[in-house]
Amino acid sequence: MSSLYAEKIIQISDRCRSCDHCTSVCPSGAIAGKLGEQHYIDHNKCLNCGQCLINCPAEIIKDLSMAEEVKAALANPKKFVIVQTAPSVRVALGEEFGKAPGYNAKGKMFASLRKLGFDKVYDTEFTADLTIMEEGSELINRVFKAVGQPGYETSGPLPQFTSCCPAWVKYAEDNYPKILPHVSSAKSPQQMFGAVAKTYLPQKLNIEPADIFCVSVMPCTAKKYECSRPEMISSGYQDVNAVLTTRELAQLIKEAGIDFDSLPEEAADSFVGQSTGAATIFGATGGVMEAALRTAYELLSGQSLEQIDFKAVRGLSPVREATVSIPIKALGGAVLPVKVAIVTGTKHVASLIEDVLAGRSNYHFIEVMNCPGGCINGGGQPIRRDA
């Protein structure tokens, strides 16, 4: 995929009705044009999040589709085509087939993917767990550096920002490059999976990495941009070859004449199919924070976190915060109050970033998701006009 392709994921048709609604939902000010005039996207500012797309009343904003690339790979006998599915897809896919919002289509989704011809069907939850372990461990290293624990002098600064939302990461890169040392170095679950798919998986299946075509089904149009980033080549090949949105998967199922309702419930393939379940809550704002904190708590304290009150960080308020008291085993059980913040909607993060850069922030960990409510409302999800 060319960089030019990646830079133009979201496009406004020349049939634009100039209603100006898209400018009100764009988190980065990437859409130019006045009321009554043709609008266009400045791709240097665009986060590829697709919020303008799902909110366009005229439905004339589109994302570039990778469906043809996927169909070509499925038809190529020389390609071993695998697919991963994000947790948010399973509770949205059913809407494309007349199911009520929130219907869990997980089993039928796996069955439909096999019907489409994928050689292996996997769940992204496994590599979401890897992301959590990486982010949680990295947070611990930063905390130890902050409290002066020897051996952690080269760790990054606090607070640590999450890194699994590609739209948020691009926003930081474009607007606040000085904040990047605070952003976790962990890849997103999609890209963690791609790295495993092109390195470990070929060894297990005795397949050349070049022969594997890795597809993601995601609730997010920005994932199409993320998979094309030049650093995402763990094996020397593009880790994730193509991304389908929830809407595009539904369209492929319909084009293939698959009767979704009559499909049996099937499970994902067992290899990299196991997970703790923490990844299931990734798709909602605050989910990444909760999962990472549980990991950090257990590693720092040496004991399981049986229950924690996260009511303050759950919900849809743009910015929420909470404090978790963690006893640190390496410091003789001294309790560290870990203060966290959750931001849903990138446009609300600027003030927090400016506080960090000015040395005014007392947070340890900040989760940022670009889309309101999290991935469940991503730009690749079903578009509902009755809501």
Score class of each variant (00 low, 15 high):
97 F>K: 02
370 N>T: 15
72 A>N: 13
329 K>R: 13
312 A>G: 08
120 K>G: 15
276 T>C: 00
112 S>I: 02
40 Y>Q: 12
114 R>Q: 00
92 A>F: 06
189 P>A: 00
190 Q>W: 09
293 L>S: 06
271 F>N: 10
245 T>I: 02
227 C>S: 13
149 Q>L: 14
255 E>H: 07
214 C>P: 10
103 Y>G: 06
78 K>M: 11
334 A>N: 12
25 V>R: 08
347 K>D: 14
2 S>W: 12
230 P>L: 08
69 E>S: 12
62 K>S: 13
126 F>S: 14
118 F>Y: 02
267 A>I: 10
197 A>S: 01
298 E>I: 06
131 T>L: 13
225 Y>I: 04
298 E>W: 09
195 A>H: 07
179 I>G: 08
28 S>F: 03
49 C>M: 03
366 I>R: 04
21 H>G: 09
270 S>N: 10
27 P>Y: 05
272 V>C: 13
67 A>N: 05
266 E>V: 04
256 A>G: 01
317 S>G: 10
372 P>D: 14
356 V>F: 06
324 V>G: 05
151 G>A: 00
89 V>W: 05
98 G>H: 02
83 V>E: 01
372 P>I: 14
28 S>V: 02
128 A>I: 15
192 M>H: 13
245 T>D: 03
23 T>I: 11
8 K>Y: 14
283 G>C: 07
383 I>T: 13
142 R>Q: 04
197 A>V: 00
239 D>N: 03
330 A>W: 09
222 A>S: 07
52 C>E: 02
276 T>V: 01
155 S>Q: 03
380 G>A: 02
115 K>E: 15
39 H>N: 04
193 F>K: 03
228 S>F: 15
26 C>Q: 00
150 P>D: 01
316 L>F: 14
312 A>W: 10
192 M>T: 09
234 S>M: 12
75 A>G: 06
67 A>Q: 08
259 D>K: 10
352 L>Q: 01
133 M>F: 11
228 S>C: 14
381 Q>L: 08
372 P>W: 15
217 V>L: 02
137 S>K: 11
114 R>G: 00
238 Q>F: 07
152 Y>W: 05
251 Q>Y: 13
371 C>A: 15
213 F>Q: 01
274 Q>T: 12
220 C>P: 10
349 V>P: 09
265 E>V: 12
24 S>P: 10
257 G>K: 01
270 S>I: 13
137 S>N: 14
71 K>C: 07
162 T>P: 10
155 S>D: 04
10 I>Y: 06
228 S>M: 15
262 S>M: 12
300 L>G: 02
76 N>F: 03
217 V>D: 04
300 L>P: 00
56 C>F: 02
104 N>Y: 07
160 Q>H: 09
339 K>P: 07
28 S>P: 03
293 L>E: 07
186 A>C: 02
226 E>A: 09
191 Q>V: 08
386 D>M: 11
363 Y>D: 01
177 P>V: 00
329 K>P: 10
2 S>H: 11
267 A>S: 13
37 E>W: 13
334 A>S: 12
294 R>Q: 10
347 K>E: 15
